[in-house]
């Protein structure tokens, strides 16, 4: 709790949360949404491929997905922390927010085994294992859950 209070007292956190400037909360929030589009969109393209959309594309051609995911993750980690810090005591203790964090971590976690599966296999491999398909379904569901939780935060937690 002391950490949350300290976060809230940081000048940058206060600026993001309270400045009327369009570069403060509006821009940070918009970047967070753009990061979401890149991160989830790229991740879903790999999931669709693993589930059979575009069967002829070799799995090894999906290296770009992980670079795009990295960009999205970094943007959203930075903007997410900035958005969190200004209301750290509110978000840090709100159950729906913790659910969102859990879902984000779960979604990102599906990408680790998929990364080694896609990038370290045979460069011409087109068949998909049952386990990779399950991970793809888990990824789609978890990202959908994370977006839903994130969107509903605005309604469930008075901020």
């Amino acid at each position: 709790m002391a950490l949350l209070v300290w976060l809230e007292s940081l000048p940058l956190a206060i600026w993001v949360h309270e400045s009327p400037s369009v570069w403060a909360q509006p821009t940070v929030l918009t970047l967070h949404t753009m990061g979401m589009g890149v991160l989830v969109g790229a991740s879903w393209m790999l999931d669709l491929r693993l589930l059979g959309i575009g069967r002829n594309i070799p799995l090894s051609s999906f290296g770009w997905v992980f670079r795009a995911v990295m960009v999205g993750l970094i943007v959203n980690l930075v903007t997410g922390i900035l958005l969190f810090a200004g209301r750290a005591t509110l978000w840090g203790t709100a159950f729906p927010f913790l659910v969102k964090m859990l879902l984000v971590v779960a979604s990102a976690a599906t990408l680790m085994p998929l990364r080694s599966y896609v990038l370290h296999g045979d460069p011409n491999q087109r068949e998909v294992s049952g386990r990779a398909r399950l991970l793809a379904i888990a990824s789609i569901v978890a990202w959908s859950g994370a977006i839903t939780a994130g969107r509903l935060l605005a309604y469930l937690v008075a901020g």
Binding site: M36, G41, A42, W143
Partner: peptide, 9 residues
């Protein structure tokens, strides 16, 4: 937001 992510991807 879900539709946005799918289209953008």
């Amino acid at each position: 937001f879900l539709g946005l992510s799918l289209s953008f991807g």
